[in-house]
Simulated assay, not measured.
Amino acid sequence: MTTVTDLTLLRDALGHLKDREQVAERLLDSSAKHSFDPDKELDWEAPPVDGKWFWPPELVSLYDTPLWKKMPEEQRMELARHEAAALASLGVWFEIILMQLLVRHIYDKPLTSMHVRYALTEIADECRHSMMFARMIQTHGAPAYPVSKLNHNLGRVLKTISTTPGSFACTLLGEEVLDWMQRLTFPDERIQPLVRGVTKIHVIEEARHVRYAREELRRQMVTAPRWEQELTRISCGEAARVFSVAFVNPAVYENVGLDRREAVAQVKASGHRREVMQTGAKRLTDFLDDIGVLRGVGRKLWQRSGLLA
């Protein structure tokens, strides 16, 4: 039953929402000024630079573990190369899901609206990003690392049944942790030039995607029915659990000559790794907490994922 207090809170919350069309118009202006064609912007023919990392060592899953301390530098750098390929593979998987979620979101929206036009612009961005990540994997000679069959099928379910607020919450989950890592990567002169170029393009263009998703999720958590808000809290928490598990593909350890079981165990026990993941997610979890997503069962699921202290 809706009370007078509920209606007052709803009215106040609606008053703080930004106009959807104005937000989209600003994002479209930014897209016109700051969009990139990776095929033309990046030097895909240049060979890797000897002695440079493919991913910042501090962001490699085994960093500062007992196993890492025993590994020779060459093996550490090889692990970084494979983890960069695994993260790029994860990014392609996620962006394909995101594109389908965006298409579903705009299916019944006014086709001439700025909001729809920006969604289509973002889909075009994500197409380029997916091709860019795949080409980077191929160029650097590492294998692609698809997610597990279970997570692949969970993604299939998500893109089929997700509610609108659930879609945008999961969008932010997939974008913001990787974005935090990439913001550390592209200015880092220890890193391969191609990796720096790829991450810089992605960071610049993803900033618009995050803004779009945040504004829409904030709106949805005010206007959606209570049952949908609660379902969003639970589905977002479960997505956080799946995402944290999928973030590093255990096959990378075998491919660089490590014992898979030992490596996975040490990553799970690593205080450094836990701090990296929670720091990477903090900007997002602060936002989700502010708009009422991190409550009840959903909050417990986030804590179990290791992304929230």
Results as ranks from 00 to 15, higher is better:
T3F: 02
T3E: 08
L7P: 09
R11L: 14
R11A: 15
L14Q: 15
H16A: 14
L17W: 11
K18A: 15
D19M: 06
E21C: 04
A24Q: 07
R26H: 09
L27I: 06
S31H: 11
S35A: 08
S35K: 01
P38K: 00
K40Q: 15
E41Y: 05
L42G: 05
P48T: 10
P56C: 01
P56E: 03
L59G: 05
L59V: 03
M71V: 05
Q75V: 08
R76I: 08
E78Y: 10
L79R: 04
A80G: 13
A80K: 11
A80R: 07
R81G: 01
A85D: 09
A85P: 02
A86E: 01
L90G: 09
F94C: 09
E95N: 03
I97D: 13
M99S: 09
M99A: 01
L101R: 12
L102N: 05
L102F: 03
L102M: 13
R104I: 02
R104Q: 14
Y107D: 12
Y107L: 12
D108W: 12
K109Y: 13
P110L: 10
T112F: 12
S113C: 02
H115P: 04
H115W: 10
Y118W: 09
L120K: 08
D125K: 00
H129N: 11
S130E: 15
M132D: 10
R135P: 06
M136Y: 14
I137Y: 08
H140T: 13
H140A: 00
Y145G: 04
V147N: 10
N151K: 14
H152F: 15
G155F: 00
S162P: 01
S162A: 15
S162Q: 03
T164V: 15
P165Y: 00
F168W: 10
L172G: 04
L173P: 00
L173C: 05
G174V: 07
V177C: 11
V177L: 14
L178N: 13
D179W: 04
D179H: 11
Q182I: 00
Q182N: 05
D188R: 06
R190P: 06
R190H: 01
I191A: 05
P193Q: 05
V195T: 13
R196I: 13
G197D: 03
K200R: 15
V203S: 03
I204E: 02
E206N: 01
H209S: 05
R214Q: 12
E216L: 12
E216C: 13
L217I: 00
R218N: 13
R219W: 11
V222L: 10
T223G: 09
T223V: 15
P225H: 09
P225T: 08
P225F: 04
W227E: 15
W227A: 14
T232G: 02
T232M: 02
A239G: 01
A239M: 07
A239P: 06
A240N: 06
S244Q: 10
V245Y: 13
V245N: 09
F247E: 04
V248R: 07
N249K: 04
P250A: 02
Y253E: 06
R260E: 04
R260I: 01
E262M: 14
V264Y: 07
V264P: 01
A265E: 15
V276N: 02
M277F: 11
M277P: 07
G280Q: 00
G280M: 02
T285D: 06
T285R: 01
F287I: 08
V297G: 00
R299W: 03
K300L: 10
K300Q: 00
L301T: 01
G306T: 03
L308M: 03
A309M: 08
